[in-house]
Amino acid sequence: MNSAKYGGGIWRVLYVVLLGQLVSFSMALMSFNASLSANLGVNAPFTLGFCSYLSITLVFGTVFLYRRQKLQISWYWYILLAFVDVQGSFLGLCLVLLSDSGVGGGGGSNPILGDVLVIAGTCFFGLSNVGEEYVVKKVGRVEVLAMFGAFGMLVSIMEMYPLSLKGRSIFERKSLAVAPWNQAVILTFVGFGIAGFMFCSLTPLVLEASGATLFNLSLLTADMWAVVIRVLIYHQKVDWLYYVSFLFVGIGLIIYSKTEKYPSEVSKLENADTERQYKLLPEEAVRE
């Protein structure tokens, strides 16, 4: 990490941790809006994702076109990255929508399928995060987010229709056609788009400042932020252990951020070792 840009010592740690928590909070907002849309009778995970990618494209795509930049990475790599991210987002959102809309009941009739979906979604998210970290550190976030949003929209549109699950039709075209389009439903889609924009625009900053490991560790608090949101909106009561666990996760993130070696620090240490070796060589030559 560039110490001139982020500061040193405790300020750098606070910057990284707080930035990660903003990403985690935005992810909790996405889950909340997805859950709310399911409760209102709309089950459309790809359409929700489309709103997120649309907001990213409108902002960063405009900036990219204004700068008249040329792609520094081939477009097909962005298609692959967008495809992986869309699948991970779908398997995360699909579980939220199915559980909140009551599909399959609450008895957990097919736990193996649920485990497979969770594992698959985690794998897709891991691949997406590592790939995004690589391209962000190589070309910057404007190009990455512009192409990421554009191809994410394209993949989402292509996958909105041919889906079914155990004989239950979850074609989004039909779901959207029969959806009760009122102000509350529209606000959930708008809210998801804004939260998705926050998540995607802040993610490259975390990946650039720290890396995919700390990014995924920061997301451990997303469920806790979701509890906080439900407490504030629905006035639900939660056990005090939630707050204790939140505290412990935060302490763990601070410890990890404090002890993590960033790329710039590693390069400085390597350069220092190299300079030390070069300084010793003449002295050794004189002694010989």
Rank of each mutant, 00 (worst) to 15 (best):
L22E: 05
L22H: 08
L22A: 11
V23E: 07
V23Y: 00
V23G: 03
V23F: 04
V23S: 03
S24G: 12
S24N: 07
S24Q: 10
S24M: 10
F25M: 11
F25C: 11
F25N: 08
F25K: 05
S26Q: 01
S26C: 08
S26M: 11
S26N: 05
S26F: 12
S26K: 03
M27G: 14
M27N: 13
M27K: 11
M27R: 10
A28T: 12
A28W: 09
A28L: 11
L29S: 13
L29T: 12
M30C: 14
M30T: 06
S31N: 15
S31G: 14
S31K: 10
S31R: 09
F32C: 05
F32Y: 12
F32S: 13
F32Q: 11
F32T: 12
F32W: 12
F32V: 13
N33R: 11
N33G: 13
N33A: 15
A34N: 14
A34S: 15
A34L: 13
A34T: 12
A34H: 11
S35A: 15
S35L: 03
S35R: 15
S35Y: 10
S35E: 15
S35C: 01
L36Y: 13
L36E: 15
L36A: 15
S37F: 07
S37Y: 01
S37I: 03
S37A: 15
A38F: 12
A38Y: 10
A38E: 09
A38T: 06
N39E: 15
N39W: 07
N39H: 09
N39A: 14
N39C: 07
L40K: 14
L40A: 14
L40D: 09
L40F: 09
G41E: 04
G41F: 05
G41Y: 05
G41M: 05
G41W: 04
V42Y: 01
V42A: 02
N43F: 13
N43R: 07
N43P: 00
N43W: 06
A44S: 14
A44W: 03
A44R: 08
A44H: 05
P45L: 09
P45T: 02
P45S: 01
F46V: 13
T47D: 04
L48A: 14
G49D: 06
G49R: 08
G49L: 04
F50P: 08
F50A: 14
F50N: 07
F50W: 10
F50V: 08
F50K: 09
F50R: 10
F50D: 08
C51V: 06
C51E: 06
C51D: 08
S52M: 04
S52F: 00
S52L: 13
S52Q: 12
Y53V: 05
L54I: 10
L54M: 14
L54Q: 07
S55K: 00
S55N: 11
S55F: 06
S55V: 07
S55A: 15
S55R: 02
I56N: 01
I56M: 01
T57V: 03
T57P: 03
T57E: 05
L58D: 07
L58W: 00
L58V: 11
L58Q: 06
L58E: 09
L58T: 06
V59W: 02
V59E: 00
V59C: 02
F60A: 01
G61W: 00
G61F: 00
G61T: 02
G61V: 02
G61I: 01
G61H: 00
T62Q: 02
T62K: 09
T62D: 00
T62W: 05
T62N: 08
